[in-house]
Design a protein around this nucleic acid. Structure first.
Lengths: 143, 143
DNA sequence: CTTCCTGCAAACCTTTTGCATGCCT
DNA sequence: AGGCATGCAAAAGGTTTGCAGGAAG
């Protein structure tokens, strides 16, 4: 389900600007940071301001509808965002070429369940990030 | 093995200030951020400067001897550090009381191995952070 | 002499906030 | 009127850097 629909379901009204921002997140293939999101949204309404971006992201976070990623700080301290509805997945970041790959599996689900059972913590937000070298970069080095 | 010994092993000489900083990390029970580390190191040498802290942390990162944690940004954007030599573990952060618990298990190890096998990525740095509510906080709410 | 370390202050980058304005109901 | 949304500019918070002075090999 798209963010826009989740918000609708919850009866949350969006202003025109916020709608543009939410749709930009929904329709993006890659992970966007605040600046990229602003840039993209401005294609549809150039008046949109940075502060509005952050305030909209804040609203989505408080609704638990988006996840905030660091992607191993590969590009500084900025945060990246993605809708939470996809199956929760790890992010593998290649420290050499910067490629980001997503990873999910039964074992990952199992681990989360195990954490809940053994620690008593709820797992509201789970962030698994791996920094390493992707296969292509490894082979390029060895070859 | 302590950071200080790993550095010794690698033949890396430390200045007096850097030694103090490294030992502060080695001897700390909790996770320190740059400011806390500075404060603690200044107890032994008040002349130590912020920049030296960051430069020393940078050196340790480049040596792969410390891990950098975000702890779910529970307290803003600062980074926390810990020696990498302990068995790699997840960090469970209680969003209510701020408690940080460490978690490691066979399943976690298995998952990392699975990631390597299936994705072809090396897993040089693995960061698993969970945000939720710890058992005590859950019970307090329900009770 | 050369290299690396250090302090200081300024710069940097991203995110957050205060305030006045404006829109919508 | 009342309540939120917005733009703007400034502040905040943490990290990085340029430069000049020093210590060490």
């Amino acid at each position: 389900m798209k963010l826009i629909d989740s918000l609708e379901t919850r009866g949350i009204r969006l202003t025109a600007q916020r709608r543009i921002l939410v749709e930009a997140i929904d329709n993006s293939a890659e992970h966007l940071d605040a600046a990229a999101l602003l840039e993209r949204a401005r294609e549809r309404d150039p008046r949109i301001n940075r502060a509005t971006v952050y305030r909209t992201l804040d609203m989505l976070k408080r609704q638990g509808l988006i996840d905030e990623l660091d992607l191993m700080h590969l590009n500084g301290e900025k945060h990246y965002y993605e809708p939470r509805n996809r199956r929760n997945h790890a992010h593998l970041a290649c420290l050499e070429c910067g490629r980001i790959e997503e990873y999910s599996s039964e074992t990952y689900e199992l681990l989360k369940q195990e954490i809940r059972e053994r620690s008593g913590f709820t797992t509201d937000v789970v962030r698994l990030e791996v920094g390493g070298r992707c296969r292509a970069c490894s082979e390029r080095k060895h070859g």
